[in-house]
Amino acid sequence: MIDFSVYGEQTPHISGWRCQKCGTLYYPAPMVCRKCDSMRDPTTNKGWEEFDLEGPCTLLTWTRVWNLPEGFNKKFLLFGMVEFGNGLRASGRIEMEGDPAIGMKLTAKTIEADERPGKPVKVFVFS
């Protein structure tokens, strides 16, 4: 039977990963757990729990990039590195007016972006 749900509107999300054997959290996904050496098979993900990485986070550092690579037809973009409450960190874009500040509280969400050729990609936006 066809899974018709694949034709529905998909909400993009980026995943964090938990090793179910020892509980260690990861982003992005590893192929082996650094703590207990459990393997991750990307075809089944057996033994690993996938969860949405989003929501409140704290800004660790940021930059405003003026010389963007090919495909990004914008004057500049803000980028930042954040830490979530569970200790995981991520890098992504910041959307806000003015200058961000290190230590400020932000909220992470995921969008799809298509500046570069090929399939759209998932991008963190902190705002």
């Binding site: 982003y27 992005p28 990039v65 963007l68 690579p69 990004f72 973009l77 980028f79 991520a90 890098s91 992504g92 874009r93 972006a113 500046e115 990609v121 998932k122 991008v123 963190f124």
Partner: peptide
């Protein structure tokens, strides 16, 4: 985690 974000 990095390139797709647009980071350089």
């Amino acid at each position: 985690a990095e390139y797709n974000m647009g980071l350089t």
